[in-house]
Design a binder for these strands. Structure first.
Lengths: 186, 186
DNA sequence: GCCAGCATGTAAGGAGTTACATGATTAT
DNA sequence: ATAATCATGTAACTCCTTACATGCTGGC
């Protein structure tokens, strides 16, 4: 019995962005990933996107088309093939449901607060809170741009989820910061 | 001007667990990481903990003591050195505040819902919701065990934060699942 | 004229995982 | 007896990042 293997998750990030129908270059893929996927999944490095596109083309999941601007400005735009679409759908439907992987260094540092300077701890939480609010503001803008167009129905769902998540995170951090502030000096 | 380098984050996970004063073996470290750190930071593999302990001992941040049980049952228990404590405190206080790294494959799959079978999507969200609730229940138990003892003040703070976070995630997933359920069949 | 943005890629290395290998002790 | 848990470690490999390398185009 053949084991059905899946590609790495980054492959599906690339296939996924191409599944909305637009033909995209590696550069455009990176830009778009940074302002969409990045809110809930690590956006791959530029170099990895190019590597990934080569691999996916070799496997027949995407096809590149020369889209150079002028003589010397080389440029390659990719689109999904039928095989690529099938492979992506197979992953979305049938990959095992994995727990989200989180690496929250701010939480780790608060966990270790007994070795820290309380003033620094407060500053770290404040900085994290500010960043969280900025991320939320950016996501709200993205959400507004998605509107209620059917094409962006699922991204909009995820954006709403993300807004709730970030708002909750901001509340929780603020609460933790208040409690740290009430702590006695070392 | 010398660049002050930091160890990798996993090093601080190990140093951090040892900073609560107990002398621990690699095996115990892994167990404890799985039921504490794991709620907000990837718990390192067994093999990595042993590698890390060797590295940290060579650098003088921890010291191992032979704690064999009987003749043939080899066992090594580690504790923080003064240098290790300083290095940990330096990281907690002075490392740049980094955004939490998240890899949420369930959100990614919902984002790509337009290529999915709606029934599968619902099942995936339900499974994720169930897992989230189970994780929350596990965390509540951990939080209860921490009590309001001063030693566990900061872990308790993080546990409270985590409970809020997981409760929020559960609400948000449930909301997304309801909206997916109202979607027309493909 | 220069800088920001567009555009692509290679090479080296870091961080971590899985698979493998081994064996003692304790509970059923 | 036999399975689960305790306990340690190595080797190979995967995935991904950073640093490097190159050069065009458009705006100020």
């Amino acid at each position: 019995m053949r084991e059905e293997r899946f590609l790495r998750t980054t492959s599906y990030v690339v296939l996924g962005l191409l599944s909305f129908g637009r033909e995209l270059t590696g550069y455009e893929l990176k830009q778009w990933a940074d302002e969409s996927i990045a809110f809930f999944f690590a956006s791959p490095a530029m170099s990895q996107i190019y590597t990934e596109l080569d691999r996916l083309e070799a496997a027949g999941f995407v096809r590149g088309r020369d889209a150079s601007r002028g003589a010397d400005r080389s440029r390659c735009a990719y689109r999904l093939t039928a095989r690529g679409t099938r492979e992506l759908a197979r992953w979305v439907d049938h990959a095992p449901v994995a727990a989200p992987a989180l690496k929250h260094t701010v939480a780790l540092r608060l966990f270790l607060g007994h070795v820290a300077d309380p003033a620094r701890l407060r500053a770290i939480l404040d900085e994290h809170l500010e960043r969280t609010r900025a991320t939320l503001a950016a996501l709200e803008k993205v959400r507004a741009d998605l509107g209620d167009d059917e094409t962006w129905r699922f991204p909009a769902l995820v954006a709403d989820w993300g807004e709730r998540y970030l708002a909750g995170e901001a509340d929780a951090v603020a609460a933790a910061a208040r409690r740290v502030r009430r702590l006695p000096r070392r």
